[in-house]
Write a protein that binds this DNA or RNA. Structure first.
Length: 490
RNA sequence: CGGGGUGUGGCGCAGCUUGGUAGCGCGUCCGCUUUGGGAGCGGAAGGUCGAAGGUUCGAAUCCUUUCACCCCGACCA
């Protein structure tokens, strides 16, 4: 295990982020494949927890999983003009296979709208076939110029939902519904508050009529686009001839949507909750809820302590908790404490001879207050009803993480009305969430980015951000219907 | 892709200017003593110095090329 200290956030946020990933043993750069990473077991377990919950939510909203080819004929991409323009620069292309050059090159999927569009055309014939609600869990590849672990790697894992509907209204409902699924997932599982909104034309998905997004604030004030839901209109329907016969017997193009959320969320988790001591995980996504550290001096003590630890672990597992007993020898308890804290385990139990006598355990939460002597506060919990008590504390911890993240965001969210204040808000490497008026043009959006590096993260949906009120564009003074969210972003 | 930086045992680094065949800390393995907030002592293992060429009697060190990673941009989930 690495021994060098985690770089404090205040000194070098980027280095801190790298250190957390290494010290928590989440992933490492592949090295032998540019821009790709190996997600290690502790990191992958977090993704599996995310997948399990999202999959349940997708199925609860009527979606079914399917799998489409990794390789897509190049000609498919070219069928939708904006789509190919958006993705062409970052495609990895397969030109040879089976020892000879292919007649038509394949690209490794950067996203699957095109190949799924092709199959939708085969599968959909009648309005009775609609809506068609499909999700795919997959890896995709986009040859990014600058990569950062979890946030932007050449290969990444995600889910992509693809649906086809008979009417635009139905499709728009789906787009909004799935955005809310993402919002709820972020809130309930990740303990991460998000702002829902609409992407500006410039930030929209290549080939979409409209892109909805959830944007989260990271600890350094930058925004992270955390999930997107696209209204594809009939663009792909027309490109792939996906048509159906309506109730009146007329042939119509379908209305499609797509929506995705990726392993980037692990990066979001890190930058939302973790601290200078290591990873901090919300209990609902933690691969291990509780680690039990047995403490003993003599062999007799050892047997009794381990027996009790195993029994408690078994009881807690029966209560639905994910528990690990750290039986490693030759390692002092303190060393184990530090290691599990680096890995983000929400709660630790210590059990030793003293506890055996009292029929109790010592418990310590990952984010514990310090006492007068600067030591983390611990709490004695009796064996009776232990699972219930731990459950309560984990639930409270989950909620505290959310409250803490929300507070952090609110303290770093501002309404700005003058250009000078706007520039000051993004001076140097500073970032925060700034709600300001914008005249609605891409030209102004780009000028603001050029001057401040801040971009429009989204046009907030109703109920998000400040109440809509007309005003004047921060840059041009032209009329604006509502404030939009500006921030630097990952 | 432009600019900058870095590649030396699992991790963190020194050595490079002034070439002489690799060292430190942590970790790992074995033994004994330890174990309620990062253990101590003794012994041991582990490295084609990112890769390929070149210069040289001799290259971690000098030259060329290349690969990867990190940071700042531009591009993007």
């Amino acid at each position: 295990m690495a021994q060098a200290k985690i770089k404090p956030r205040a000194e070098d946020y980027a280095q801190w982020y790298q250190d957390i990933i290494q010290h928590a043993d989440l992933a490492e750069p592949a090295g032998v494949v540019k821009g790709c990473m190996v997600i290690k077991p502790h990191g992958y377990a977090i993704w599996e927890a995310m997948q399990a919950d999202l999959d349940r939510r997708f199925k609860a909203t009527g979606h079914k999983n399917a799998a489409f080819p990794l390789l897509i004929p190049m000609s498919f991409l070219e069928k939708e003009a904006e789509h190919v323009e958006g993705f062409a620069p970052e495609l990895a292309v397969v030109t040879h296979a089976g020892g000879k050059e292919l007649e038509e090159a394949y690209c490794i999927r950067p996203t699957s709208e095109t190949i799924i569009g092709h199959f939708f055309a085969k599968w959909i014939d009648s309005h009775r076939d609609l809506p068609l609600l499909i999700n795919q869990w997959a890896n995709v590849m986009r040859w990014e110029l600058r990569t950062r672990m979890f946030l932007r790697t050449s290969e990444f894992f995600w889910q992509e939902g693809h649906t086809a509907h008979a009417t635009h209204d139905e499709a728009k409902e789906e787009v909004a519904r799935m955005l809310d699924v993402y919002r709820d997932f972020a809130r309930e599982m990740m303990a991460m508050p998000v702002v829902r909104g609409i992407k500006s034309a410039h930030e929209r998905f290549a080939g979409a009529l409209e892109t909805l997004t959830i944007e989260a604030m990271m600890q350094d004030g930058k925004a992270l686009q955390s999930g997107t839901s696209h209204d594809l209109g009939q663009n792909f329907g027309k490109a792939f001839d996906v048509t159906f016969q309506n109730a009146e017997g007329e042939r119509e193009y379908v209305w499609q949507t797509s929506w995705g959320l990726s392993t980037r969320m692990i990066g979001a988790l890190i930058m939302t909750h973790s601290d200078d001591d290591g990873l901090v995980l919300p209990p609902r996504l933690a691969p291990i809820h509780v680690v039990i550290v047995p403490i003993y001096r003599k062999d007799e003590e050892r047997d009794a302590v381990l027996e009790a630890a195993d029994r408690i672990a078994a009881d807690l597992r029966d209560d639905g908790l994910r528990v690990e007993v750290d039986k490693r020898t030759g390692m002092k308890p303190g060393a184990k404490y530090y290691e599990w804290e680096r890995k983000g385990v929400p709660m630790r139990l210590e059990i030793g001879p003293r506890d055996l006598e009292q029929r109790a355990v010592m418990s310590k939460m990952r984010l514990a207050e310090l006492d007068e002597r600067g030591r983390p506060m611990k709490e004695t919990l009796p064996w009776d009803g232990l699972g219930v008590e731990i459950g309560k504390r984990l639930d409270r911890f989950q909620e505290e993480l959310y409250e803490r993240a929300l507070k952090m965001r609110e303290e770093n969210t501002h309404l700005v009305d003058t250009w000078d204040d706007f520039v000051a808000a993004f001076e140097g490497s500073k970032s925060s969430f700034v709600y300001a008026h914008w005249d609605g043009t891409t030209e102004t959006e780009l000028a603001i980015k050029e001057a401040t590096k801040a971009t429009i993260r989204c046009i907030p949906l109703e109920g998000e951000g400040p109440p809509p009120e007309p005003g004047k564009c921060i840059k041009t003074g032209e009329p604006s219907a509502q404030r939009v969210l500006f921030a630097k972003n990952y």
